[in-house]
Amino acid sequence: MPRITYIEHNGTRHEVDVRPGMTVMEGARDNGIPGIEADCGGACACSTCHVYVDPAWLDRLPPKDPMEEDMLDFAWQPDPERSRLTCQIKVTDALDGLIVQMPERQI
């Protein structure tokens, strides 16, 4: 099962197994990871699941679609390169080892 590392803004690390087919947001929610609010439940209708993706992983993720790009405009301190919405990243075996970091605060 793929292991995802979630890093809180304060540096606290959470390494959890996430079942393939789930999203990175669902993995955080189901494992009680703080800092990923997911107010819209994964519908790409808010930006409260915004994270920064570790640079080593950027080329391994599917590209952002236009809806995700639009929602990232509302994220707290978005980074044009590293910001992603965790509700839009489907977990696959290829994502084993993915590292994401939460911004200082969510909107």
Rank of each mutant, 00 (worst) to 15 (best):
T5D: 05
G97C: 10
S83H: 10
T92L: 07
P34G: 09
P80H: 04
V100N: 08
P80A: 02
D65I: 08
P80V: 00
I33T: 04
N10G: 03
A56E: 14
P63R: 13
G97S: 10
T5N: 01
P20T: 05
E8V: 00
K64Q: 14
M22W: 13
I4K: 07
M1E: 03
D54Y: 00
Y6E: 03
P103M: 09
M25V: 05
P63G: 09
L61N: 10
S83P: 11
D93M: 02
M22V: 00
R105K: 15
E81I: 10
T12F: 11
Q106E: 02
I89G: 11
G21H: 07
W57R: 09
D39W: 11
A94S: 15
P103R: 15
H50T: 04
A28R: 02
V18W: 06
P78K: 08
M25Q: 04
L98D: 03
Q101E: 14
Y6H: 04
R60E: 15
E15V: 15
V16W: 06
T23C: 08
E104L: 12
D17L: 13
D93C: 01
P20W: 12
L72A: 11
V51D: 02
P78G: 04
H9A: 06
E68M: 09
P78D: 05
W76H: 15
W57M: 11
K64L: 15
A38T: 00
A94C: 01
M71Y: 12
D73N: 14
T5P: 03
I33W: 05
R105W: 14
E37H: 08
R84P: 08
D54T: 00
G32A: 08
M102L: 09
P80S: 01
R84Y: 03
T23D: 11
G11K: 08
T92A: 10
P20N: 08
R60Y: 12
L58H: 06
E69W: 03
R105E: 09
R13L: 12
T86H: 04
E69C: 05
S83N: 09
E8H: 09
D54Q: 09
P66R: 13
G41I: 11
